[in-house]
Nucleic acid binder design. Structure first.
Lengths: 169, 169
DNA sequence: CGCCTCATGTAAGCAGTTACATGATTCG
DNA sequence: CGAATCATGTAACTGCTTACATGAGGCG
């Protein structure tokens, strides 16, 4: 699962620009995927030069022009390959867990600050994701809802553990 | 937070070999970090050539020799820099969420198989982590326990969402 | 007047993966 | 007798990040 797979999937649903795609990553995908512009645009370029996607320019008034990409038959086949590949297990890199693991090397006051910051960050994220659920939940498929719920419950569970944990320190 | 930070932290606690470190990644760190041999050994080499760590060879009988690494003063300073850096938010790449998000492109039977496999994988992981908790919990610091709990609760929450979700499909 | 949003991209660099290569010992 | 564990490493590649570069329009 890498940028090209996600991009192909998105383009299979709807024509999009690089900017649109990146925005999508920050919203619905924020929990399970992220990528920078420096990844999105070169990936699009590469996919286009191999005829997996097709570019057309949309002239807009009052706004800069947009490069709208659409998936080709060849691109759909490539996406199909991804879908048939084995499901990889979640890949997580958690800096907060790292700080907790090496907690003995940080003084208690700093540790409390770190945890409290993480708690409030988590609260924000939970609210954001729940907001998305109420806004778009109606238009989402059952499985899409499940993926969003996984994100919500992940942050909620981390929040809970941190709140309980801070009491015992 | 990258391989070199984790390795320095581990060596600050105890002298270790590349093999030991990789094993540790597969156990206690499995939830929040992973890295292959192809990353561990080159990282050690680089750290050593810059005098952040020091190598000594341990001759073993019946087993291959070991390269035991210990952290230097310079290395401790570098680790200190990491500890003073701002805490980055969790970075997650979840292939299962991706499959769920693009569920409309997979047939229902396949989707059920994918979910069921993920459920049993999650169950295994939860058992493993809980086993670790009972085994090593006594020797772990409060914050180390919290990091392990975050891992356990993450997998438990994902398990729960998938089990609930599968009923509704 | 300055910041935010919209919009597209490049260049340099690096961190990390995959695959390969080797070899002794122990256990079932 | 084969598989697993212990143990170390390299080479080629690649995906991604960071930082840079540009510029128009809207909003307060």
């Amino acid at each position: 699962m890498q940028a090209k797979d996600v991009i192909l999937g998105l383009l299979k649903k709807k024509d999009m620009s690089g900017y649109d795609i990146k925005k999508r990553f920050e919203e619905e995908f924020s929990f399970f995927f992220d990528s920078s512009y420096g990844s999105v645009y070169p990936t699009l370029k590469k996919l286009e030069s191999n005829q997996y996607i097709h570019k057309k320019t949309l002239i807009q008034e009052g706004k800069p022009n947009k490069h709208l990409f659409s998936i080709t038959k060849k691109g759909e086949e490539l996406f199909e390959c991804y879908l048939e590949s084995e499901v990889k297990r979640d890949n997580i890199r958690s800096d907060i867990c790292m700080r907790l693991y090496f907690g003995e090397f940080i003084n208690k006051k700093q540790m409390l600050t770190i945890i409290k910051n993480t708690i409030s960050q988590n609260e924000k994220t939970v609210h954001q994701l729940e907001h998305m659920y109420t806004l778009y939940g109606g238009n989402m498929s059952d499985t899409q809802k499940i993926s969003l719920e996984i994100g919500i419950e992940y942050h909620k569970s981390q929040l809970q553990v941190l709140q309980d944990g801070i009491q015992k320190l």
